[in-house]
């Protein structure tokens, strides 16, 4: 009933906006299956050889593996230190100073590219750490705020008297955390994992300064490849990344419902 009152021009505008949003991604999809050596749309012929070509180029194979390892490890580490922090911020809210929660907003205030450059100077060069380790530190910091905030948000609606009840009935604190608290904030942890994972996989700005000889991430490799070649391989790599997005959205839909993402 409300719909009928929206100005038709506004509806037309919205349709155009969605064409603008979807069009480029559909073009990439079309270009990735085109049987031509250059990027074109609509596709001429139909082939999957550009997808095979991804795995024929060792740099892509290597960076896909690096990016996946990095995303899993960085997200895992960020959750490992982020969940206790989120728990402390909620459970001991009165005892802890307010600036402590501000600490976890700081990574958002610092531009990613500045974080990457600073880690290059202070950690990679200053402490002579291996490239992968520096990348891991960068990505962990990149995703830590998501982990703390999302888990914190779901802990905010958790009734800590349930935990107290379990403890007063003799359950040890650690066991209580894993059997009572964690299952209750499961959806928050899954959401944090997924947001963090996709952020890490797609990151350019933090990784930019932290890749080096032999170790690079997929988005950085794509940037380097585009500057030299302009064939449909990049389009097919892009489609792989879009499939990953679809997978992520399917997991979110299964566990939390997609409306979660609009919050």
């Amino acid at each position: 009933m409300m719909t009928s009152r929206i100005n038709p021009l506004l509806i037309l505008f919205t349709v155009l906006v969605y064409i603008f949003l979807m069009g480029p991604l559909i073009i990439v999809l079309g270009a990735s299956v085109s049987d031509t050596t250059y990027l074109t749309f609509p596709p001429q012929g139909l082939t999957l050889r550009w997808f095979e070509n991804i795995f024929a180029i060792s740099a892509f194979k290597r960076t896909i593996i690096t990016s996946l390892e990095l995303a899993f490890l960085a997200t895992g580490l960020a959750l490992l230190i982020g969940i206790p922090a989120a728990y402390a911020l909620n459970r001991y809210r009165i005892k802890l100073p307010t600036w402590l929660s501000t600490v976890f907003v700081l990574p958002i205030l610092v531009p990613e590219i500045v974080l990457g450059f600073s880690l290059l100077k202070s950690v990679a060069v200053g402490m002579q750490t291996p490239i992968f380790l520096t990348l891991l530190v960068g990505h962990m910091l990149l995703v830590l705020p998501y982990c703390v905030r999302v888990v914190s948000a779901s802990l905010a609606s958790f009734d800590f008297s349930i935990e107290e009840a379990a403890v007063s009935l003799g359950s040890p604190p650690m066991k209580t955390f894993f059997t009572i608290v964690l299952p209750n904030v499961r959806s928050g942890v899954i959401a944090a994992f997924i947001l963090a994972f996709i952020t890490s996989i797609n990151d350019v700005s933090t990784s930019l300064f932290l890749t080096g000889p032999g170790v690079s991430t997929l988005p950085i490799q794509i940037l380097a490849h585009v500057e030299q070649f302009f064939d449909p391989t990049i389009a097919s790599v892009s489609v792989l990344l879009m499939l990953l997005t679809v997978a992520v959205m399917a997991i979110v839909e299964r566990t939390l419902g997609l409306t979660f993402l609009a919050k």
Binding site: L21, V28, I201, N202, V226, V248, M249
Partner: peptide, 17 residues
Amino acid sequence: VFPLLTGVVVRSFAWLI
């Protein structure tokens, strides 16, 4: 949400084509 979760590189590359 779909374009938002698709990486910056992919979305910029689309405009290159």
